[in-house]
Design a protein around this nucleic acid. Sequence first.
DNA 1: TTATATATATCGGATATCCAATATTAATAG
DNA 2: CTATTAATATTGGATATCCGATATATATAA
Lengths: 103, 103
Amino acid sequence: MNREGAGDCCDMRGMLGFLILFLLSKKPMHGQELAGEIANRKGEKKPSPGTIYPALKSLREAGFIVEEKDGKTIVYSLTERGENALKLAKRKFVKTFFGIFPE
Amino acid sequence: MNREGAGDCCDMRGMLGFLILFLLSKKPMHGQELAGEIANRKGEKKPSPGTIYPALKSLREAGFIVEEKDGKTIVYSLTERGENALKLAKRKFVKTFFGIFPE
DNA sequence: TTATATATATCGGATATCCAATATTAATAG
DNA sequence: CTATTAATATTGGATATCCGATATATATAA
């Protein structure tokens, strides 16, 4: 069944990398913290490890984030390259969805 | 290559149905007009027929939009069910991306 | 009528996305 | 040291998304 069939026309598939960059730009976080924040915002359960860590790896390989070990966890934060990418992506996002936020 | 690898962290894959509902809620349009509006907002070329018409079909089958023939074209507009779905989706969207729009 | 242009529709397939299950690593309690 | 707990990492696969190519329909021009 496709996403419209379930009465859900907005699963936001494909926005995960963008959302992660945005969240990390506000505050460096470790993986599970990030997953919790995403769950909160989307009103869903936490994205699975198989979702969040490959996404982080992909962002790291693109040079958008760096990792820093902090005890048992790894804190992720944006690189300058990541900030630039986010800035561009935000511009596109705002342009695309202009008018969608309530006044 | 995945989307991050290309320096693009925001291709907005998966948001097409949502975007269509939103655009049609502002103004009923026919398919190509809609495609043009999407292209404008995203700064890309028009989504292909193989993208836009199946998306519209899916929304119609979900009961979110109706079609009305108008000469050579077909004008799509939201049903009440579509308006409700959009309202819910917008709420989730706003909650998820809260803080992302510039002040 | 015939030709042309444009809108709409469908199909096959390449790719992306995400999850569930599983494995690994590391800190700390006992 | 060993067990436990939690974070991180990887892999395989189901599904969704979207495009290119192609087909069909319809209005208008010639």
